[in-house]
Design a protein around this nucleic acid. Structure first.
Lengths: 209, 209
DNA sequence: CTGTCCATACCGACCAGTCGGGATGACGAG
DNA sequence: CTCGTCATCCCGACTGGTCGGTATGGACAG
């Protein structure tokens, strides 16, 4: 699914009376994201998605190959965003510890900003088809390895403690990050930045030499 | 569902030819645990569970009220185990930091020892009925609060760093623990105790004053 | 005869995906 | 400018199959 051409307007005939020039694929993706996060992938009938998006099944299967395809698109979007952010931060000329801290904080902020995607990610990945699941795993592994490289760079440079396995630290930290969706509440007392600072602080403290 | 009476033998007529005196409810629970962990709750038909357990639907619905009920039993078992362990460790007369470290390591070891239950726990909780979900949440909250109390005790006593929110630390640490199921592999190079030590070490280091 | 334990046949609900076709706009020929 | 053609976009009824749960009754123990 490409949908690289945003040059269609849709809403032909007496379809939805929305004054917005809403692209149908985008609306479908948004509805699917919300519903998958709330009810879970398997609990969300395609019927509900198209209702919420204000279209019908014909539209959905015109733009997407399957229900799985929708899920895969959602994953791809998150992974793209996080990878871009990490690359950007890692390419800075700042000292390693600052880059690591920034990356650790950023992944918390973006995870909270896209909390629905995060929930879906860790709850529904296993119900993807085998090949697509492999694809997503590979992408995430690359991300983790990039993050691990930062830690190892810091360890080699002596600014981070050496007696701890970098791969375990990565799994440790991203476990915490992925679980934000289970306890973080939008209207709660904690701002995303507060959580991000605390998380990054915990990570950096556990790594100081 | 109580099943407190293990005094039934089952296997009447020409049922399974197992020489074991296998209790039917236990076999059902084991099969369900394995399948829920492998395929997910919604992807596991009741038919598969009873096949795997060597009985039929009649048996399942004789002992359990519903498919949800099975899931709930699995949760209750994990929670009971972890709570008991925590209480036991917390009641020791050892210094706080030692108790906290022991508790942190123990929850990793038992999570890995019951990895299927862990997977189910964080992947399938949301597909429980509303009331039962509330019940499980309350139990887990009590567990977390018990753990948090240990941290706060250490902070008051001055043996743990004070500038960090204990509740966030708990969510941070248990995020990591709950995600063990996504990356830890039974036959892998890491022993459960190794992971436990590293995790506990990371936690304690991030809390040292 | 009664209660426990369990097998089997069965039911209504629901679901992902398909299919034939209708509407609309772009475009080229005349 | 008009008409025919074609591709895109989308509708909604329909299908084949699966699912959780139930109804009925048989076997056996006390």
């Amino acid at each position: 699914m490409a949908l690289e051409n945003p040059a269609d307007r849709g809403t032909a005939g007496r379809g939805t009376a929305d004054p917005e020039v809403a692209q149908v694929p985008r609306r479908l993706l948004e509805a699917a994201t919300r519903l998958f996060a709330q009810e879970g992938f398997d609990r969300t009938p395609v019927r509900r998605i198209v209702e919420e998006a204000g279209v019908t099944k014909g539209a959905l299967y015109h733009y997407f190959d399957s229900k799985d395809d929708l899920l895969h698109e959602i994953y791809a979007r998150v992974l793209r965003l996080q990878t871009e952010n990490l690359e950007r931060i890692a390419a800075t000329g700042a000292p390693v510890e600052q880059r690591l801290r920034a990356a650790a904080a950023d992944v918390v902020v973006t995870s909270i900003a896209n909390l629905d995607d995060s929930k879906i990610f860790f709850r529904s990945m296993h119900q993807l088809g085998e090949e697509k699941q492999k694809e997503v795993r590979a992408e995430r592994r690359r991300y983790h390895e990039r993050f691990r490289a930062l830690i190892e760079e810091g360890q080699r440079g002596g600014v981070l403690r050496d007696g701890v396995r970098a791969d375990l630290v990565v799994d440790f930290y991203f476990g915490s990050v992925h679980h934000l969706g289970t306890w973080y509440r939008e209207g709660g007392p904690l701002a995303a930045e507060t959580v991000a600072e605390h998380f990054a602080d915990l990570l950096m403290t556990s790594l100081r030499p």
